[in-house]
């Protein structure tokens, strides 16, 4: 009788006070969650905490001293600006490619679809060396721009090119499923009401895709801010001109200025998190009528 009661109590936890976890017959929750948390802490959380602690050891004056440096400021401006431009270009062409893959049928569509993921699979160093060879004055693409006096490689446009490459799949992959599921009847309804394709796209289709595009933009932007491998080969890395934030961190580390590196790293992380939160809020406002429909 007592044994029965004990089981019953275990099977129906007190409803008034929610338990840490819902009861389940499956074993292994403790070890699995324990291992997950330990692994995550050792690899990610504790080392990241070390970074923030390192930066926190400094007083405000010395933190300001590191960040107010014109070279550091220039690197931040370049990194965020180039990342935003690259993500914006990816936003437009990502939509075009997603449209192409979802709406049209053509020979080789599967190959095109697979190629979109190449930037995820190709090591960034390889992308860096090949893009700089491609965009250099004597490269296949660079040689078209050189006579016009436009340098791509070893100049800011080169950085944008590399960041476009690494961010390319994000918008395509976020917009594609939304476009796939987009009710064709909505566009047909617009057509029966007299709208042409362009008006339908601007007023009906684009607003529905906008939240996904913004998600893709945010992902591409976040990736671009941290990008190192593909950029340093093509950037030229001239202090104050074509030096990006991750490179600046590496330079500080090579000079054994770990504190300076930590300050720059924390600042960069905080700014990008803040921007991502802002994008998230904007996205919610854009999607508010869609979510509930």
């Amino acid at each position: 009788m007592t044994a029965m009661t004990a089981t019953a109590v275990k099977a129906t936890p007190d409803a008034a006070q929610p338990p840490f976890r819902r009861w389940s017959v499956l074993p292994g929750f403790g070890p699995a969650l324990g291992f997950t948390l330990a692994y995550l802490s050792l690899i990610v959380l504790i080392p990241l905490a070390a970074l923030f602690l390192k930066a926190a050891q400094m007083d405000w004056a010395s933190i300001w001293g590191v960040l107010a440096n014109p070279r550091v400021f220039a690197a931040f401006r370049l990194t965020f600006l180039a990342s935003a431009i690259a993500a914006a270009i990816n936003c437009i062409f990502g939509l075009v490619i997603a449209w192409l893959l979802v709406r049209y049928r053509f020979w080789g569509r599967r190959i095109v679809d697979a190629l979109v993921d190449l930037p995820f699979a190709l090591p960034t160093a390889v992308a860096g060396v090949s893009l700089s060879a491609l965009m250099a004055k004597n490269g296949w693409v660079g040689s078209f721009f050189a006579p016009l006096g436009i340098d791509i490689a070893y100049a800011p446009p080169g950085i944008v090119v590399a960041l476009i490459f690494v961010g390319l799949p994000f918008v395509v992959r976020t917009v594609q499923p939304v476009l796939q599921d987009f009710e064709p009847e909505l566009e047909e309804a617009a057509a029966t009401l007299g709208a042409d394709r362009w008006v339908t796209f601007i007023r009906i289709t684009l607003p529905a895709l906008a939240p996904a595009m913004l998600t893709g933009f945010a992902l591409a932007f976040a990736r671009a801010i941290g990008e190192y491998g593909s950029v340093i080969f093509i950037a030229g890395n001239r202090p104050g001109l074509t030096e990006i934030v991750p490179l600046l961190i590496v330079i500080k580390l090579e000079e054994f200025d770990y504190r300076g590196a930590a300050v720059i790293a924390v600042a960069s992380l905080l700014i990008s998190f803040a921007l991502l939160i802002m994008i998230n809020i904007l996205q919610r406002r854009l999607g508010r009528h869609h979510d509930r429909g």
Binding site: L40, A50, L51, P246, I249, V250, A261, A262, A265, S268
Partner: peptide, 22 residues
């Protein structure tokens, strides 16, 4: 938190180990 490494620059990912084990 599991997705966190994706939003951290690889350079920072390397550097945190310098700060712990360097």
């Amino acid at each position: 938190l599991i997705d966190l490494p994706f939003s951290v620059s690889p350079v920072i990912a390397g550097m945190v180990f310098l700060l712990v084990f360097g």
